[in-house]
């Protein structure tokens, strides 16, 4: 039942990334909804769910967005360890919104930089300033806004954040 729900969430998120996200761009960036979903899954469903969801999400998003799934795995891979590391730095057993948000923003920055690098290797020649102002910064803004809104929605629904460390939760 839980796996089916996660599968549905993955399908809906990928469809929204392909059909809805491009409708609301800021400069040259669009929100990275799969990354937001991964952060929410890690925080509210536990790291196991997010660890299992990442390859499925990368495969589905790769198919829908015409990007190699291998690049998406590499793009989103640092999110979970970074979030767990930030949680450990704060010393809490459960993640709060701020470290998760910080990890998602950093991971989003990395993901966009990596995918921009892939585009550059295929012939794109963006200026570094435009890359920063049109892609990386607006992307962080969009991811941050989407994650903050979704986090508040989850809390309003009564969901409690869980530990991000798989050692404690088990795998």
């Amino acid at each position: 039942m839980r796996a089916a729900l996660v599968a549905l969430l993955i399908l809906a998120t990928v469809a929204a990334q392909a059909a809805v996200a491009p409708l609301f761009p800021v400069a040259g960036a669009v929100v990275d909804l799969p990354l937001v979903l991964l952060a929410l899954l890690a925080a509210f469903a536990g790291p196991l769910a997010a660890m299992a969801a990442l390859p499925a999400l990368a495969l589905c998003a790769g198919f829908a967005l015409n990007v190699g799934p291998e690049w998406l795995i590499a793009a989103w891979l640092p999110l979970l360890p970074a979030a767990a590391w930030l949680q450990r730095l704060r010393g809490g057993a459960r993640p709060s919104a701020v470290p998760t948000l910080a990890a998602a923003l950093a991971a989003g920055l990395w993901a966009r930089a990596l995918l921009a690098g892939v585009a550059v290797s295929a012939g794109a020649a963006p200026s570094p300033v435009a890359l920063l102002t049109d892609l990386l910064l607006p992307g962080m803004l969009l991811d941050g806004a989407a994650l903050a809104a979704a986090w508040l929605a989850c809390r309003a629904l009564g969901r409690e954040a869980r530990s991000l460390e798989p050692d404690r939760r088990g795998i």
Binding site: M51, G62, L80, D167, I171
Partner: peptide, 24 residues
């Protein structure tokens, strides 16, 4: 964290990424 299960998972993901790249 370096020796947590994230390490093994990250290794598995890298291997999967390589396999997907080849299959693609």
């Amino acid at each position: 964290l370096l020796f947590s299960r994230y390490t093994y998972w990250a290794g598995a993901m890298v291997a999967l990424a390589v396999a997907l790249a080849v299959a693609g």
